[in-house]
Every structure is written in C-alpha cells, then in structure tokens.
C-alpha cells in the first residue's frame, strides 16, 4: 500500500513506530493548514514559520503518546497551543480590540452586527477582492479569526474544531456564525467607506 493511500490516522501510527517516510507525508498533508492557523493567531509571517516548525518537532516527540484519536485535532491542538503561548510570552495584543473569552466561552465584548438594512448588491460583490477579504480577516479578534481560518480556509469539520478548542460542537457553530457576521460587517464597512 502506498503512503498516499493511507489516511492521516494510519500515517500517525506508522510514524509512531519510527517510519520517517510516513512522518514526511504527515507534514506534506498538513503543513499549509498549520501555517494558516499559526498565522491567523500570531499575525506575523516569521513567527508563523517558526511555530509551524516547532509544531512538527513537538508532534515527532509526542508521537509515542498518540493513542489513535483524531489526527488532525491532535496536530492542530499542538499548533494552537504553541501560538497562544507565544502571544502570551511576547505580550502581544493582536489588533486593537482584544476579545477575552469569559468562563462560559462567550465573548466579553458585544459583537456589533452590521445594519441589517444594508444588504450587499451585485455591484458590491463584484468589488470584493481577495486583498480586502484578507485585511478584514486580519482585523477580526483572534478567537473569531481562528474559527474563520479553521473552518473556511483550512476546511476542518465542526467536530474537529470542537475537539481542538475543547468546546461543544453547538458552540462552534454559534461562534462561527457570529465570526462570519463580524467579517461581513467589516467588509461592508470597508467597501462603503
């Protein structure tokens, strides 16, 4: 069986036994997603590269402890924890509005919904550019940015995100909805202004 035919969990188990080629395939399959996630949290290309490297080192060292759970959640959790640790160490406050999660997981600040009367028309949609979308994603609070990246850019399933963030799946859906609403509002504000 070729390595391309193995799923991620099987590759993890092979790498756990010391198979270096299996580990290389793991890196190849997940490196972009890990980089995007790290970048979404730390907002720095250099830091995101270092964090991506550190994530795979940490994965290699912790493979003996892997017990067959969701491989994607396993590696994303490592990347996320490393990124958050880096932010805490460097006392960074990404963006001007640091959103702090309360004990029950809700955002402390109220999300400013866009004016529901303003609906984007076709012309508006045509004016949208990828750069605008990137800027607006970058301007989101970190928890929202993280969710948008994991779901809409990296394509993780709800249950995988729930496992990484250690929150219920329902909470993932509701937070993601609020994050998308916030992004939509930012884009509309940017385009109107």
């Amino acid at each position: 069986m070729r390595y391309e035919e193995y799923n991620l969990e099987d590759l993890f188990l092979l790498a756990k036994k010391g198979d270096g080629t299996a580990f290389e395939h793991i890196v190849r399959q997940t490196e972009k997603q890990i980089y995007n996630l790290s970048l979404s949290i730390v907002k720095s290309n250099e830091d995101a590269e270092d964090l991506t490297q550190e994530t795979y080192l940490r994965l290699w060292r912790s493979l003996p402890d892997y017990k067959g759970e969701s491989a994607k959640s396993y590696i994303f959790r490592i990347a996320r924890n490393l990124s958050i640790d880096l932010i805490r160490k460097r006392n960074r406050t990404p963006g001007s509005d640091t959103v702090i999660l309360t004990a029950d997981g809700e955002f402390e600040r109220d999300i400013v919904d866009h004016d529901p009367d303003i609906r984007p028309d076709e012309a508006f949609i045509r004016r949208l550019t990828i750069e605008t979308v990137r800027e607006c994603i970058s301007a989101l609070p970190p928890p929202m940015r993280e969710l948008i990246v994991m779901r809409d850019i990296d394509g993780l399933a709800y249950h995988e995100i729930a496992s990484i963030l250690e929150i219920p799946e329902g909470s993932v859906k509701s937070r993601l909805f609020r994050a998308r609403e916030r992004l939509r509002a930012l884009i509309i504000e940017k385009n109107i202004l």
């Binding site: 590269e49 939509r184 884009i187």
Partner: peptide, 17 residues
Amino acid sequence: FSIALRNMTRSAALEFP
C-alpha cells in the same frame, strides 16, 4: 454574498513559504 465571501476566504490563504 455568503457564497462569494466563502470562496474568497478560501483563496485568501497566503502562499506557503
């Protein structure tokens, strides 16, 4: 709008270094 935004978001990922 949601469909367009979703497509753009997916493309907004930066190039892998």
